[in-house]
Simulated assay, not measured.
Amino acid sequence: MGKTNQKKPGDPAKAGAEQEDGEVDNAFDLWLRRGLHQLYDTVAKEPIPDELLRMIEEDQRAKKE
């Protein structure tokens, strides 16, 4: 039998996948983006520790030499 391209219930949506009505399924992407922002925005806004900055600067200097 031939292979069909029909989506089965429960199949994950692919990025940019179109629904039967032709609209791009953005609901999951929006939900995921909002959830990730809620979890990680405060962490991303924290200052970089001085020790880590020092290590990065030392590594950059070592690569230039």
Rank of each mutant, 00 (worst) to 15 (best):
D21R: 03
P47C: 00
D25V: 13
K63V: 03
R34P: 08
R34F: 07
F28W: 15
D50R: 11
K8Q: 13
K45W: 03
E20D: 14
H37S: 14
A13Y: 14
M55A: 04
L39T: 15
D11T: 09
N26P: 05
K14E: 03
K14G: 05
E18T: 03
I48H: 00
D25W: 15
T4L: 02
Q6V: 07
D29F: 15
K3E: 10
V24G: 03
Q60V: 07
G10E: 00
I48L: 00
L32D: 12
P47F: 01
K7P: 03
P47I: 00
W31C: 10
P9L: 02
L52N: 05
Y40R: 12
K63M: 10
G22F: 06
T42A: 13
T4D: 10
R34Q: 06
I48K: 00
V24S: 09
E20M: 10
A62F: 01
G35W: 09
D25T: 10
L36I: 02
A62V: 00
E58L: 02
K14C: 05
F28N: 12
G22K: 01
G16T: 02
E46A: 07
I56F: 10
T42G: 13
Q6W: 09
L36E: 10
G22S: 06
D11H: 03
Q19A: 11
E46K: 02
H37Y: 15
P12R: 02
K14P: 01
P12F: 00
D21K: 02
N5S: 01
R61L: 05
K45R: 05
D59P: 15
Q6M: 11
T42D: 15
F28H: 12
I56V: 10
A17D: 06
K3C: 08
H37E: 15
D59C: 11
D21H: 04
E65A: 10
Q19V: 09
R33V: 11
R54T: 15
V43D: 13
R33I: 09
K8C: 07
E58Q: 08
A13G: 08
P9K: 04
P9Q: 06
K8D: 12
Q38W: 13
L30V: 09
W31I: 13
P49R: 11
D21F: 08
K3S: 12
P12V: 01
L32T: 13
E57A: 07
D21W: 07
I56H: 02
A27W: 08
E46D: 04
M55R: 01
A13D: 14
E58R: 09
L36F: 10
M55T: 03
R33N: 11
L52D: 03
E57W: 12
L53S: 08
D29A: 15
Q38A: 12
T42Q: 14
E46L: 06
P12Y: 00
W31L: 13
K3W: 05
I56Y: 04
K3F: 07
A13F: 11
E18R: 06
K8I: 06
G22N: 06
L30A: 14
Q60C: 10
Y40V: 05
Q60D: 04
D11E: 04
R54P: 14
K7L: 02
I56N: 04
A62T: 00
E65V: 08
T4W: 09
E46R: 01
G35E: 11
M55Y: 05
Q19H: 08
M1F: 09
L39E: 15
K63R: 06
H37F: 15
P9Y: 05
K45P: 00
L52I: 10
Q6F: 10
L52G: 06
G22H: 03
G22C: 06
E57G: 09
R33L: 08
D21Y: 09
